[in-house]
Design a protein around this nucleic acid. Structure first.
Length: 882
DNA sequence: CACCTAGTACTTTTT
DNA sequence: GTACTAGGTG
């Protein structure tokens, strides 16, 4: 998104940069001051080194984006380079938008003419414009993972292979993707195949490639591969882009794969003005083909390359950097470096070991609340200032981990934004609506046709689709097959044998819908087109009959219509194409709100490039993080470690680490992550009130491998014995069979009052901690101190609802998945009680039978007089209590 | 033959 | 929470 207008798109190319004269020396100095003033010495060198290859090794928080934006400003204002001669490539649309916004602050309107975008979006634009030069259709569709899987599943079905085990579509696609990114053709895969399974994959890869070609579709890999091929095989086209873009920038260079690297190298050929910015320690996408060689070998590929290392960190405190360094320095394959900051000291890093994920989440939530509204310490002077929820983030390894946290946040009425998970554009109804739009623009996009052919249900089942597929398949009189759209039309006319009369009629209807909608395509604005799709296809009526679920889906469709409204300044047809394209290329990160007052829930992968004053990293359990799939493989383990480094360095001032001893799906007892042990002891402090383990040892035995569990007092070492012993039985408070009790205690225990001590020691690096003998026991304790349950009071009660706090009654208090509900309900609060009499606009009066709180809403079941029992979403149904 | 419901199994990271 | 399956029903 946010692609610039392209002033040269249809204009003859100029071959020399337009330089404007800079008249006076005085203004020249002012200019230099404005652009270079805010930079340090090293950053300045990076900004003013404008020609030739340049590798900027930019550690976390070292001002990477700042360097790129200032460099572009410098090129334009000082060097007189025309904005449209500059290209900046990022990995997410959000990063591009942010860069443009910052640039606009500096140089105003001209920033719009700088070409910026993701590798994918830039390739799409080039291919739409010039793809015909390498034989691509102009109107290719873009297939996401879901569409890809449908293609593969089709093959599996044809071959009677199971879609599970080693032939899971996801695995097959992964293998195909890897091969493609290594530049292998299906033929080469075949040649290299040793095992039966590899030959099978190679065969599927061949069919997959042929099928996508037939469907006139490109997957994400293809976008890059074809983008590269365009530059390699269409010299005139390549030359045009090379001449046009004279100054190239690549952000997050460590995440580029070989194809992306080759692509940018093609563009840079000749002038060689290529500035790449990256950090090998933050390379976390090797599983997606990112190749760390790209950064390690840059100097070899560009012998004249200048290398500049940014090592001063402006984001975090020293203790956070030390923690991050402690972890990542265990990696072998890295360029040795160490970040430094002039923010010495820093807060201690609490480590909390939870009993299970729920306990862990509940503890995090309590902490969040304390940070947001800290209680005054008894001394009165050392309370932490209140912090906004917008300044806090909870990071985790896998999306699945968000749920426990989400639930805890909901119960506490804390506003949050969840990034990732089931994404808006991946929701079924949204994909259905988009597939309808794609069908209106393509005769061949079989996957989209199959998607919508029976949406909403109209009696066209698997059998019928199978017959259509056969009719569309290539044969002697139609070697390329028949476009699926045309097959539907002819089947509707009864020209495809074997189709049941009912299905035939339904197909005729579908064909009629498509024709009618196509007829209006160019005449009405995009939002109106969506309205037409919703009503013409019967989607709207269908969802209206589907109860609460339907209402939620309908709300999503309205949201989609709202998004479509952003394209109003374009001609309807252009708007449609642009809309289809951009909705295919949005990333999770693009939806992150900077200004919101919500806690952010996000994976560590998605968090790269972002920062918050307060960061929690949760799920630091062996097998989860590091992930089990990395345990056997040293290279993958190093990537996990880099991921940990990325996570830690997101924090500006406060970092908290948590883990749970019991992970879901009952696979026994977990062990605290090795990464905890890699952080220097003196930076950490135990935040536990109780030993979370079920017995006194870890799976690895006490003290072995130096895991924090062994050294931090979780093991039955001296630290625990120092106190007056554990409450409860001698075998520990969490012995099996007493789960409930233990949980209850764990919940209650952390609710004690007291604020985190601030370490106001400015004097030393190694003394960043609170004085443990201070008058009140701090919530967290330096490692090895007496367990506070020996002395502390306990709050009774198993749940952790806040009795004394009213949930905030404003919209911002609402959780937000990717969409915003039409009207909102405060979570955790039921409005409707059994027996309430209510009034509804359509159904008249009724009596509430039951009411149930859901994730973001309240489901009310009502017996309406003369209508029957209905279940409605309270936020949407416009119910009035009589 | 299509559709619905209930039950089961699975969950890395994503342009 | 979702994706898939099996089994019953129209």
């Amino acid at each position: 998104m946010n692609l610039p207008s392209d002033p040269t798109a249809d204009a003859p190319l100029q071959t020399t940069p337009t330089r404007h004269r800079i008249a006076e020396g005085a203004s020249q100095a002012a200019l230099e001051e404005r652009i270079l003033g805010p930079l340090n010495e090293v950053q300045r060198r990076a900004v003013t080194t404008t020609t030739g290859p340049l590798l900027v090794l930019a550690g976390a928080g070292s001002g990477k984006t700042r360097v790129i934006t200032h460099r572009i400003a410098w090129l334009i204002e000082h060097e007189g380079v025309a904005p449209w001669r500059i290209l900046a490539v990022t990995f997410t649309n959000k990063a591009a938008a942010e860069m443009r916004a910052r640039l606009e602050e500096m140089i105003g309107e001209r920033s719009r003419d700088v070409a910026m975008g993701t590798f994918h979006s830039l390739c799409v634009r080039m291919l739409r414009r010039d793809g015909e030069a390498i034989g691509l259709p102009r109107e290719f569709a873009i297939y996401d993972a879901d569409d890809q899987a449908r293609v593969i599943k089709g093959f599996l079905k044809e071959d009677d292979l199971p879609a599970t085990g080693s032939t899971k579509p996801g695995l097959i696609l992964g293998a195909i993707s890897r091969a493609k990114n290594d530049g292998l053709t299906p033929d080469q895969m075949e040649d290299q195949a040793v095992t039966h399974h590899e030959r099978l994959i190679a065969g599927l890869a061949r069919r997959y490639a042929a099928e996508l070609k037939r469907l006139e579709a490109l997957d994400f890999d293809d976008l890059l591969i074809e983008g590269l091929r365009l530059l390699q095989e269409a010299p005139a086209v390549a030359e045009r882009y090379r001449t046009k873009w004279q100054y190239l920038h690549v952000d997050e260079y460590q995440d580029t794969n070989r194809i992306q690297y080759a692509w940018i190298r093609e563009l840079a050929a000749g002038h060689g003005n290529l500035c790449v910015v990256g950090d090998d320690d933050q390379s976390i996408y090797s599983w997606r083909g990112a190749d760390i060689r790209n950064i390690l070998d840059f100097e070899r590929d560009w012998p004249k390359a200048e290398v500049i290392a940014l090592e001063q960190n402006y984001r975090s405190t020293q203790s956070i950097l030390d923690a991050a360094h402690g972890v990542v320095s265990n990696n072998r394959g890295r360029k040795a470096k160490k970040l430094w900051t002039d923010q010495s000291g820093g807060l201690p890093i609490p480590v909390y070991g939870g009993f299970d994920a729920e306990d862990e989440a509940a503890w995090i939530v309590r902490r969040l609340e304390e940070h947001a509204a800290p209680r005054q310490g008894r001394g009165g002077s050392d309370a932490e200032p209140a912090e906004s929820y917008g300044g806090m983030a909870i990071l985790y390894r896998t999306n699945a981990q968000s749920r426990a946290i989400e639930e805890a946040l909901l119960r506490a009425s804390i506003p949050y934004q969840l990034i990732g998970g089931t994404r808006f554009y991946q929701r079924r109804e949204v994909k259905d609506a988009l597939a309808w739009l794609r069908v209106l623009r393509s005769e061949t996009d079989r996957i989209s046709y199959e998607r919508i052919i029976n949406v909403p249900p109209r009696g066209i089942g698997e059998k019928t689709v199978e017959l259509l597929r056969e009719a569309a398949a290539p044969r002697s009189d139609a070697p390329d097959g028949v476009p699926f759209g045309r097959v539907i039309a002819s089947a509707g006319r009864g020209e495809v044998p074997g189709i049941a009369p009912k299905a035939r009629k339904a197909l005729a209807e579908v064909d009629g819908m498509i024709s009618r909608l196509r007829g209006r395509l160019a005449l009405i604005e995009l939002p109106e087109l969506l309205d037409a799709v919703y009503s013409e296809t019967g989607l709207r009526a269908h969802l209206a009959n589907e109860g609460v679920d339907g209402e939620e889906r309908w709300a999503n469709l309205l949201e989609l219509r709202g998004i479509a409204g952003r394209f109003l300044e374009l001609e309807p047809l252009d708007a449609l194409d642009r809309f289809i394209e951009e909705t295919a290329l949005v990333a999770d990160q693009d939806s992150i709100e900077d200004e919101s007052e919500r806690v952010t829930l996000i994976t560590m992968h998605a968090a790269k490039g972002l920062e918050w004053p307060t960061v929690f990293i949760s799920g630091l359990t062996e097998g989860l993080f590091p992930h089990s799939r990395a345990l056997m493989d040293e290279e993958q383990m190093e990537e996990e470690r880099r991921l940990c480094y990325v996570g830690i360095t997101r924090a500006k001032r406060r970092l908290t680490l948590t883990y749970a001893i019991r992970r879901g799906w009952g696979d026994g007892e977990g062990v605290p992550s090795r990464f905890l042990a890699e952080i220097p002891d003196e930076l950490l402090e135990v935040a536990n009130d109780e030993d979370p383990r079920t017995d006194g040892t870890t799976r690895f035995g006490r003290g072995v491998a130096g895991y924090r569990s062994a050294r931090s007092g979780f093991a039955s070492g001296e630290a625990w014995r120092e106190g007056s012993g554990r409450p409860g039985t001698p075998d520990g408070p969490f012995s099996p069979g007493r789960d409930l009790e233990a949980k209850r205690r764990a919940y209650g225990a952390g609710a004690r009052s007291g604020s985190l001590r601030t370490p106001d020691h400015d004097d030393g690096v190694d003394a960043p901690f609170a004085d443990p003998d201070h008058d009140e026991p701090p919530l967290t304790r330096p490692i090895g101190r007496i367990p506070p349950w020996a002395t502390g009071r306990r709050v009774e009660g198993g749940d952790h609802q806040r009795a004394d706090t009213t949930p905030p009654h404003d919209e911002s208090a609402l959780p937000e998945r990717t969409r915003r509900p039409a009207r909102v309900r405060i979570p955790g609060e039921r409005y409707f009680r059994d027996g309430d009499r209510v009034q509804h606009a359509h159904f008249g009066t009724g009596v509430v039978v039951t009411s149930k709180l859901t994730r973001s809403d309240e489901e009310v079941t009502i017996a309406f007089v003369g209508v029957g029992v209905k279940t409605l979403a309270a936020s949407l149904a416009n119910l009035e209590i009589v």
